[in-house]
Design a protein around this nucleic acid. Structure first.
Lengths: 293, 293
DNA sequence: GTCAAAATGAAGGATTTACTACATTTTCTG
DNA sequence: CAGAAAATGTAGTAAATCCTTCATTTTGAC
């Protein structure tokens, strides 16, 4: 259907600098091309009418008119399905080929909305404060919880520093033995079926005087008993696959909470991170995104 | 804003029969007028070019051009609010202590809903089919994209097998050299700023005859050009932190798509996985959740 | 049914827009 | 830094579109 974008994608490498600028308009705001003249598009892109037409030729079109017609057509198509409000809700039982995708996303939306309703601000604020107060943080999450754990570890390290990731007993179980004078916070992410090692670590940490922030499925979770702070997360099942969106959304609340606490300082850290990584790695394309980690 | 419809309402009584027909188009499908010529509107309404222009005069416009320009402008206004509702991004700095949590989650919901509206089923089905067809899969995602990449790798390995994770040139760049007779699929996850190494791997893979599925921010992404399949993902910024929920939700659509294709076999694989891991690791608590990985 | 007034359609002139050829600037390479 | 090649902009030509004029058809009142 989107013939134009497909052509741009394929030919993008062969385009000139000016033509790439025009591509941006064509991809992001195709309606501008649909209703404006070639000359105007030239003005909007700080190029010229001729360059716009040459851009069309590069994509294999006979000229601006043909490109414009194609965009007009596809926009009209879009318009067609604006009418009746998304019938996929009504025909839930009619298992058509394309509704499982909607179901997946709608389930995520539903759980996020549910999370929003149940949201206990006080609880989260306590958790956020505990993160801000902590001198040293250990994030633990084993098996599939390693995914969100690693993200949390990396992100906290970027905006705050002094964060460690526990990856297994063999590697690094002895943080607490070496620096017991510090105020440690253990953030444990665990869901059924709970790895025994996660519980073991949490209990050891607790007995060594560390604070524990548990992110888990509920009060009955084995790690909840040892936790000082408990964040309850209800996700679609199975959590290992379908739980990620909900889980990350709530983790992101934590991160944002830490960030707003000392926004200026965080900003400085991130910029520093950015400079360092620019030297270490090479990137391609414009850097309009503020990347860290 | 809707100057045109207002004029039609006021003047409707004074219009001729043909002009009333044209009014219907102008009110119901203004986009048709925005992109079509007066002659064509005449055809669509079974009237003539001249009548369309007289219709414009009746409304007080100098001619078709002026009416068309007015409609174009109002349609562009509409278009501005493309993408997820932007009100939370506008007030980025005005994040007060007690509303940021809601903002985070609501932003995620907004982007998911936007993704739902823009969802192109055909595109995803092609991607899913390519995954199902592939003999061997390599998942690549560097820097922060390593998080979703690792998840995708683990999950695909659980439900399908024969999946590899590319973690860097030093480790393992030579899959393709060793087994070129296989049908390889490279799944690349990359967002600005794009690591040069990701692009390099994608291009090498492409030149060695592998298929490439790109999961990235748009057609202009550097990895899109070499891609056979392109899944466009629009996330809150910065993507490294706030993008996860949206990204995982869409990745989960892929996974579900692969799972439904051969549900019985997948089920068997997962049970096997479960038995193995039960022997390797110890768990605590009831195992009502079907865990894998 | 007839005539007049209004509405409509067809065709030619005027204006805008798309396209092409040439001149100038920028970029690349040795 | 020089020369070549590519890219870009300007200006002039061809084409499409708009708009007006005039002939034809339709409508409505008596």
């Amino acid at each position: 259907m989107e013939q134009v974008k497909e052509r741009i994608r394929k030919q993008f490498g062969n385009l000139t600098a000016s033509q790439k600028i025009i591509s941006k308009i064509a991809v992001d705001k195709p309606s501008l091309i649909a209703i404006h003249t070639a000359k105007k598009i030239g003005e909007l892109t700080n190029t010229s009418e001729a360059t716009v037409i040459r851009f069309c030729h590069s994509l294999g079109y006979s000229g601006y008119s043909e490109l414009q017609d194609e965009i007009k057509k596809s926009l009209l198509m879009m318009d067609q399905r604006k009418g009746p409000i998304q019938k996929y809700r009504a025909t839930e039982d009619a298992v058509t080929r394309d509704n499982y995708a909607h179901q997946v996303i709608e389930t995520d939306i539903a759980f996020l909305q549910h999370g929003l309703q149940q949201f206990d601000y006080e609880l989260y604020q306590q958790a956020i404060d505990s993160i801000i107060r902590a001198n040293r943080i250990v994030v633990v999450g084993l098996r599939w919880c390693h995914i969100p754990a690693k993200w949390l570890f990396s992100t906290l390290n970027a905006i705050k520093g002094n964060t460690h990731l526990y990856t297994g007993a063999v590697d690094n179980a002895d943080y607490f033995l070496t620096e017991r004078d510090q105020e440690w916070l253990v953030i444990a992410i665990s869901f059924p079926r709970h790895p025994a090692e996660t519980i073991g670590l949490v209990q050891s940490a607790k007995s060594l005087g560390a604070k524990v922030l548990a992110i888990t499925e509920g009060e009955l979770s084995p790690i909840s008993q040892a936790a000082d702070y408990l964040l309850k997360v209800t996700t679609p099942q199975p959590a290992a696959t379908s739980g990620m969106p909900t889980l990350f959304s709530l983790l992101n609340v934590l991160i944002k909470g830490v960030m707003v606490h000392d926004a200026a300082n965080v900003q400085k850290r991130l910029q520093h991170y950015d400079e360092i990584s620019s030297k270490l790695y090479s990137f391609v394309g414009e850097d309009d995104d503020f990347s860290f980690y």
